[in-house]
Design a protein around this nucleic acid. Sequence first.
DNA 1: GAGAGGACGCTACG
DNA 2: CGTAGCGTCC
Length: 782
Amino acid sequence: MALAPTSTYAAGQDSSSSSTAIKASKKMENLNLPNSLNHPPRFLSFPLKRKHEILEHQNDHPPKISLTRHPPKWEPPHCSQKQAGENGFSKVKRAWSETAISELPEPQAKVSPSHQTGIVVEVHKETCATKKPLQICQRKVEEKCCESTLASKWTPSSVTCKPLKHKRAKLGPEHGTNGPKISHEGANGGGELQNQSKAGCLTAALTSDPRVTDCGKLNPEEKMLMLEKAGHAKALVLTLVYRDGTTQLDSEQKLAPAVCGLLMLMKNDLDGRTPEDPLGQNDSLVYLKLEHTPAWAQQCTHQSREDMLLQVLSRSQLVVCYKAKDLLRTTLQFYRQDLSWKQVAGCHVQDPQVSGWLLDPANPSSCYQDLFNKHCKRPHTTPAQGTKKCQGLWELYSDMELNMISVLAAMESHRIHVDKEALKRTSDLLGTKMKQLEQEAHRAAGQIFLVTSNPQLRTVLFEKLCLQERCENKKLPKTINKQQQSTSEAAVSILIPLVYTTTLCCNPQVHKIKSTFVDGILSCMTNKNYISSTWYQTSVVTGRISAKHPNFQALPRQPLQITKKQYIQGKNETVINVELYFCQVELRLLAHLSSDPELLRIFTHPQADVFTMLASQWKGVTEAEVTSEDREHAKRIVYSVVYGAGRERLSGILGVSAEQASRFQDSFLQTYREVQAFIQRTIQQCHKQGYVLSIMGRRRTLPNINAPDWGIRMQAERQAVNFVVQGRMTVGAVFCRNSVWCISECVCNCRLIAQLHDELLYEVEDSQVEQFAGEFTTPNIS
DNA sequence: GAGAGGACGCTACG
DNA sequence: CGTAGCGTCC
């Protein structure tokens, strides 16, 4: 879709209207705008309330922008395509907003070789694993550990020293007075002060508590002793303490606060302690200060910190941390100079947040206290109960989720450098384009309206222009909640030819790109010139991984191409992106689960386009006859079936009526009978058991599966199917295996950057791409 | 009157 | 279906 420069019209003609914001109910005014489309020339204007000026003088000609809609190119940048193909290994460079993300002034930074490679432009000359050897321990944690982690009696809450009001409130006054002194002091002092002083207060409270040993005050011999003690402890429980006075055990904050220290509980009494009285006679509490020190002081302070934290993490003893990923990432960031991500990526830290989420992914706990209340209500819960509860989940936890923690931490600590200035230029460019589109939309509508407002667009389309009257035979999609006429692009394109749709809707794609992917990313990098997503292991009920700030998984696949060349060509190309793409993993899984012969047949032709083949089978035509619309429909329908979307959702996506959508679904299911059988099998099973299991043994209970209300029950049924198919599985397994492989073999200077559901994005040094490709074998998915 | 926060709509990804 | 994220409206 090209956004060709539009015909210009008198600049400034509407500028007077911009500043007068009038309430919709109060006033209507006529604006006789020239009408370029075949719509009635004059309409009552839609009075507006605007955030910004709608129109401004456009005294310059905006550069031409084109949004390309073409499939990604499948070409390895420097290695021969042949070899890549032979290895069953495909790479795609994730081309993306190339004007903006380019070279940066870091010493090792190198721009990517291809014009299309926009995003990752640095290579880490990692301080290699030889520098500070950390032993990566592959140990089998005993079943006892499962009980401890899944239903812990001596969990990190026992070392909670947070001076927070809510904590005290929960415990009640009697606990407050009997509780630790540190808690008391902190609550009095910390609450109303600034963050800095809160931190000081907390730290002071921690270090002045007689039970807490401040590691900073120990002499070298005492430190050695402490280290030895830590080494002999049966378990170590770690909790990060933040500068704003909170700890890791508090509920998630919007922005991750700065770390000021680490509290370490060395546990020797694993039995017989209650949460109210956590510290056994043989247990000790140590506080490690973790603050960035000036360069001149680093030499000496690092020594002691390494002694404790790094050595603790490298040992084979039981280490527990609620939100262990944060701990590992902090460690990585803290020792950036001395520590390679490869050393951390193999650490095993038990995480009650992850195990608790596995037990009930639909209702994750918001903070440690929540988790504790949920799973450890009775202090003397018998271990047998815990074991029974986690039956079947322990393998999933220890073989997969546990490995994932450190991998995600390593991924999160990777910095993707971005040329801020270029991104800002792109933002300006898009802003100009948006204004231009806005003017066009106003002309097409014959009035001024806020193009980003759905209600206003709805008024224009359906009340002023009455476009729905022109297509009585078609049923128009409605919004989900209020059953109003939908203003989505797909819905509006039924009304009128696409070009007018795009004009009137003001090209939502451009808006999305500007707001989310340009300005959004800019807002993610205040005070820094890089981005790094935060990855969440436990926020998706189906077991997928999610990303935030920015959401790496939702970056557009199609590159935004701006014809004006702005990027800087690099001289020495050293890094490229490599993507492993497990073609339609979920569809393959559906084929596997249902054993549908037709569906399986499709995957025997790996080179063919799956959706074209599907469309040809479904419509009963040859592959050559499949139109792009057929293919798109097939794809959407497949996904709606795979993901369990209802007919309303499908109608919204396809831009057809709900009746038509459900006819499409039915005809698809008629063609692939086994798929339907699989769906019914899953639903029946869920009715019987009340829960469903995914292929990895993940479990989701669906309490509404037998609800009397039809709608609610149907939703639960769709969720059941969706869970089984969507459950993170193969990719997750490969994800861990390969990450571990990359670390242990160290054959390549490569690094995992992102997980995009069924793709893994690696950064590989240019000279090693062929080797990297060769090392990867065809993942055996179907 | 300003701003916070929830509801809603749309779009990106799979 | 189910994530994140942006925008408007109340």
